[in-house]
Design a binder for these strands. Sequence first.
DNA 1: CTGATTTAATTGTCAGACAATCATTGGAAC
DNA 2: GTTCCAATGATTGTCTGACAATTAAATCAG
Lengths: 220, 220
Amino acid sequence: MAETSTGSTVQAVAESITEAVRQGQLAPGQRLIEADFTRRMGVSRSSVREAFQRLTADGLLLFIPNKGVMVRQYSRKDMQDLFQVRAVLEGLAVRLATPRLAAAPGDLPQVVEALTAAELIGDMVALSEHNRRFHDLIVSAADNPLLAQQLERLRNSVYWLQFRVLIDRESIYRTNQQHRDMAAAILANQATDAEAVMLAHVALAGALIQNLPDTLFSAG
Amino acid sequence: MAETSTGSTVQAVAESITEAVRQGQLAPGQRLIEADFTRRMGVSRSSVREAFQRLTADGLLLFIPNKGVMVRQYSRKDMQDLFQVRAVLEGLAVRLATPRLAAAPGDLPQVVEALTAAELIGDMVALSEHNRRFHDLIVSAADNPLLAQQLERLRNSVYWLQFRVLIDRESIYRTNQQHRDMAAAILANQATDAEAVMLAHVALAGALIQNLPDTLFSAG
DNA sequence: CTGATTTAATTGTCAGACAATCATTGGAAC
DNA sequence: GTTCCAATGATTGTCTGACAATTAAATCAG
């Protein structure tokens, strides 16, 4: 277990599971057995249960009484709901962040450049990485920890789907163009414009996800 | 989180603590001792710990490693952050709910009437009750469970402060007038107008809370 | 092959244990 | 009397083992 460990066992278990889900080693819908993790990680059932509890509250796992927990899977409706919420929150974030970033852009210009560069050479890993940096930069400039936490949770929920989305060059280009437009609006201190672009940006991401095949969604 | 009670022990403990916090029997900042609850409620430590864990994720309690949990207390900045987030979420809720409620108003007219009646006779308990019904009606009409859950959590956080806010007749009147305006916009299927009123409504609530004395806030 | 019944897995909860950490108390030194 | 520090007590973090209740799997009768 080589994560940002606080020394806490529960924390380590939770992080390990989170990572496994993100990497797709634990598929959505898959049931998690307590005894399984006690053996594989050499920790007690109490610790495993507490980790499950925490991750359930985080929305990563789904808890069903007397049945245990499973990796939460989302229906199309769930994703639609999620992107509606995410849109207004990301919009709020960029609205709050704009005046601050306009005054102190920090890494913003470099990140946008890196995004464009990654797009040109088709480096998906770098693209994903810098995309995360772009949004993190905005959220942290918004200076609202609650907002940051909520958005982090929402992003975790779509993390594994996100990868299946950026496949065609067209979508990548459109997405990246929105990044550039948004950065321009931010640096010009046009909060309303930046928010409008962000709303379109999140809407596009949501639409791309809805275009994915049925097999990636639960029935619900 | 007010889930349907499963009769589960952990659930019972969590609900009991939530209720105690809402009623002010457990004051913000107060530390909760595990052994205390095992004795008083006749349950095991594991159950208490799991309940703590759940409530921490819900934002009701604050967890500090090796120190335990305490009833979370909020600084003015925390409350400002919270109301910023709440505003956009409640705004989204009413925007989504408006077309549905315009088509099928359900109890909306009666609730608004009951609010006005409670205001006239100065019945604070009824006022609070119908206020909750008003907002619940909107959120459930929005048909977005994720949004509903997030708003529920945010409301829990301010529940105990809310009571200290509605003291002067002026604020009560203004608040209630917003309810009436919002209902009118909803029934006229004017989603944008309804959302605008909601934003003002939440902003007013936030301002009233900021007017409360320092003693009700943590330092931060 | 289907359905019912027995068997095995798994969860929910409890009790008790012990080391690690935090909080408090009571000096000892200044 | 105040300040620092060690001894003491309280509390948390984690583990082990246990057992009833519930769910899932296997078995067998038809």
